[in-house]
Design a protein around this nucleic acid. Structure first.
Length: 492
DNA sequence: AACAATGTTGGAGCA
DNA sequence: TTGCTCCAACATTGT
């Protein structure tokens, strides 16, 4: 069948794995000589927004990939070869997402789906996602050599963190090692918990547990150490014949959220910016470098927010709802700073930082797109108490506060000074006072959001398809009372 | 055609 | 303790 007559380059870009890698299998079929390469652009090394933990994850992933490729004897022949760029045939395959996202857009009438439901409907018209394919085997590679120079490892081997100029002091504990091997192990460990898989509902998981309450497969999906299609079908297999949760809250639903953001991002210009982004509400955010650095460095004076930001910096992963809390705080909730600033910091520090998801979720949380109920504001005090009334999460990540009693640990500035003294932490000296008064700025910012929404309506009414006539505020009040009475009707 | 219902994930105050 | 209201939105689908 296979005609092993070509010299083939397999360019590893996203799918840093052997399993479910159709382009790699395709390459193996045809290759007399195979050159698997991963390109680390020197420009990228200098300029990319990548923190130490994320560099380490990538280096570990490349090490693991290199090891797995070696097991396929993909580098056992050391032959001098002259590369010939003429007649190179490029094969690229969809395997980073469940679907070809452009087909999903087409299925949605050529428009980006702006709700999860419309995305789901459009995607389901395409049928189930394709099955993941097997890793290439030694059999597949019979008759194929991978010529390398004797100096290969020195010149083209996996770079060390030192090569990458990573600041070793910035590295936190190595909780989530990179690589396909770890990804598959981690997935299998979770798949064994059948009841947990079947009952999983994302909004019910905890943002501030001491151990992650979710799978933490996101970094592996981001780098392609794990195939989304493989995870999807493994989940469907566990569900077979059992009652199980449904999208959007289920685990399959989480993979579909990823797909949703990939789909919208693929056809939306300037998706990672406010200006020139047709789906993004234009909001007059303000700059405040003091507040921004306090947020980044975990010095806002709100222990729940600060603990999350410190966990992010140290460990490179925080729970989805913790992201909600700090994102709301930075933008529409408290600091009124552009979501683009938060996006940059997440991109640098999150192991799972994924362009489409990062931008999409920041727009969601700042009520700039997809989500519009801007009066739903997370309290930096109350939200964390629900799942961690004792404040153990805060005690772990902001240890200066650890001696405060539970009653005050979410708002230490309210503790009597004798208690602050006993705890060995004076607020304003050993731990900052709150940089804003949440109860006050919350009100003010809701008003600002209302104004921004109203402005976008009047300046750009044709984006609203059926707004041929203006909706004056009196009319709006009428709608409100109608809504209220309807709610009552529904209940009775 | 017009209108109703629906949607991952808020919180305070009050009965 | 639970459930409702207020804060006052938008895209999409169903009737």
């Amino acid at each position: 069948m296979s005609k092993k007559c070509h010299k083939v380059i397999h360019w590893f870009r996203k799918g840093l794995r052997l399993h479910d890698n159709p382009a790699l299998v395709e390459a193996c079929k045809d290759a007399l000589e195979l050159y698997p390469v991963f390109v680390l652009d020197p420009w990228f090394v200098t300029n990319a927004n990548v923190g130490a933990n994320r560099w380490r994850f990538l280096a570990q992933t490349l090490e693991d990939l290199d090891k797995n490729l070696k097991q396929l004897n993909l580098r056992d022949e050391r032959v001098q070869v002259a590369m010939d760029n003429l007649g190179v045939n490029v094969v690229s395959c969809v395997s980073h997402t469940l679907y070809d996202v452009h087909r999903v857009v087409k299925s949605n009438g050529g428009k980006a789906p702006l709700t999860y439901q419309s995305f789901q409907t459009a995607a389901s018209r395409l049928g189930a996602p394709e099955q993941a394919i097997a890793s290439p085997t030694l059999q597949d590679l019979q008759g194929c050599k991978t010529p390398v120079h004797a100096t290969h490892d020195n010149e083209y081997g996996v770079p060390t963190l030192k090569d990458l100029n990573v600041c070793m002091d910035d590295l936190g504990p190595d909780l989530y090692p990179g690589g396909e091997t770890e990804a598959l192990d981690r997935m299998e460990r979770h798949l064994k918990k059948v009841n947990w898989i079947c009952n999983f509902e994302k909004p019910k998981t905890e943002p501030n547990s001491l151990l992650p309450s979710t799978t933490v497969l996101s970094p592996y999906l981001k780098f392609g150490c794990l195939s989304a299609r493989l995870f999807y079908h493994k989940l469907i297999h566990v569900y077979q014949g059992k009652k199980h949760s449904q999208p959007p809250v289920s685990l399959v639903g989480q993979v579909l959220w990823r797909e949703f953001y990939y789909t919208v991002a693929a056809v939306t210009p300037n998706f990672d910016k406010m200006k020139g982004n047709p789906v993004c509400k234009q909001i007059p955010w303000q700059e405040n470098s003091d507040h921004l650095s306090a947020w980044k460095e975990g010095r806002t004076g709100y222990p729940f927010i600060d603990a999350i930001m410190i966990q992010l910096r140290q460990e490179g992963w925080i729970h989805h709802l913790a992201r909600h809390a700090v994102a709301c705080f930075l933008t529409r909730g408290d600091l009124w700073i552009s979501w683009e600033e938060g996006q940059k910091e997440f991109e640098k520090l999150l192991l799972d930082a994924d362009w489409s998801l990062n931008a999409g979720n920041w727009m969601w949380l700042s009520a700039s797109a997809f989500f519009h109920q801007y009066f739903r504001v997370y309290s930096p005090v109350a939200f964390g108490k629900k799942t961690d009334p004792n404040g153990d999460f805060i005690r772990k990540y902001v240890p200066v506060l650890k001696k405060f009693p539970a009653k005050y640990i979410f708002e230490p500035w309210k503790a009597p000074s004798s208690m602050q003294q006993a705890a060995g932490c004076i607020v304003g000296k050993d731990y900052p006072k709150p940089i804003v008064d949440h109860d006050i700025v919350r009100q003010k910012n809701i008003q600002r959001m209302a104004a921004a929404y109203a402005a976008s309506k009047s300046s750009n009414p044709e984006t609203n398809k059926n707004s041929t006539k203006e909706a004056p505020s009196k009319k709006r009040k009428l709608d409100d009372t109608e809504k209220g009475s309807l709610k009552k009707k529904k209940k009775s």
